[in-house]
């Protein structure tokens, strides 16, 4: 850290918590990890958040391997404990998918399952005490370590981008390029007067494009905003621990309260992301809005 051996100030402490471990090419120091947040910013687009990637991929692998274990030993008879748990989640996801998605598609349910469980695990990292792993990493010589990938806007945007690509893909596949363009230009304003039609097309196109782009952006920012704010509050509560006994105790109580509240937020945000994804793909399928 920049301040060397001195204890970091509160601002530094918070900034430390909000900076990802960034690997990229810096114009001055060359290829390597950014040691300060300004260095990370200067690396520009061609840098990568190693901590976000490692934690999210690690949790993703945990998800697919543990679920694959249930799938490999699956039995139609009496299920074991883990299979039972996996089936419970599958049933939950499947019920929601069938509730909002009325078409035939073998990808939507697995997609929804992946989104739900993966985002749930990513969010769950928020319940790990905020200072614990970054401090251990700091001791190990790693300058930054954000362990909640969903508090990194890149992660949520990456997920939403995947959903956005699917929306476009299915819109084109189901309606065809012409149908998709018709949908983008034909509504909401309609007229029978030939002269005004092109004007309406332009207006409609602008509105519908905004509508279309708003979908992934709202997905990404909702998840990011919720988790980022929650993480922020955990960090601020964490700061209270270093501010004397009384504030420390208050902080402890607040920490427990916020963590309990957060138990609700973690699955809720994963669920919202999943349901909206399914709804958006259903909208891409249906001819009329």
């Amino acid at each position: 850290m920049a301040s060397g051996n001195e204890l970091p100030t509160m601002e530094e402490h918070i900034a430390h918590h909000l900076t990802n471990l960034t690997f990229g090419y810096h114009p001055e120091t060359g290829l390597g990890f950014a040691m300060t947040s300004s260095e990370a910013a200067e690396m520009g687009f061609w840098a990568i958040h190693v901590d976000s990637m490692l934690w999210s991929i690690g949790l993703g692998i945990l998800f697919i391997l543990s679920f694959r274990a249930a799938a490999r030993h699956v039995t139609a008879g009496v299920p074991g404990g883990w299979q039972n748990f996996v089936e419970w989640i599958m049933d939950f996801v499947d019920e929601n998918v069938r509730g909002s998605f009325k078409h035939k598609n073998d990808m939507v349910a697995p997609l929804a399952l992946t989104i739900f469980v993966w985002i749930f695990l990513l969010n769950l990292m928020d319940l790990v005490p905020v200072d614990l792993i970054p401090y251990l990493a700091y001791l190990a010589g790693i300058p930054y370590m954000k362990i909640v990938p969903t508090t990194d806007v890149n992660v949520t945007v990456g997920l939403a981008l995947g959903v956005f690509i699917l929306i476009i893909y299915y819109s084109l596949k189901i309606k065809g390029p012409v149908g998709f363009i018709k949908e983008l230009t034909g509504i909401p304003f309609q007229t029978s007067i030939t002269v005004i039609k092109p004007i309406f097309w332009v207006i409609n196109f602008v509105l519908e494009t905004i509508n279309l782009i708003a979908k992934p952006i709202s997905l990404a920012l909702r998840l990011f905003g919720n988790l980022y704010a929650a993480e922020m509050i955990f960090i601020l509560i964490g700061v209270m621990y270093s501010a004397g006994l009384v504030l420390g105790l208050v902080g402890g109580v607040l920490h427990v309260g916020w963590a309990i509240f957060h138990i609700l937020v973690v699955p809720l945000q994963a669920f919202i992301f999943m349901v909206l994804t399914v709804v958006y793909i259903d909208m891409a399928y249906s001819e009329d809005h």
């Binding site: 679920f67 697995p110 997920l159 981008l161």
Partner: peptide
């Protein structure tokens, strides 16, 4: 930054795996 693309790829792989081997 590039993390977006990385996430997108990881996401695709996980979805593919789930669709192929889990679901």
């Amino acid at each position: 930054n590039l993390t977006i693309i990385g996430q997108l790829l990881a996401f695709s792989v996980f979805v593919w795996f789930t669709m192929r081997f889990v679901w």
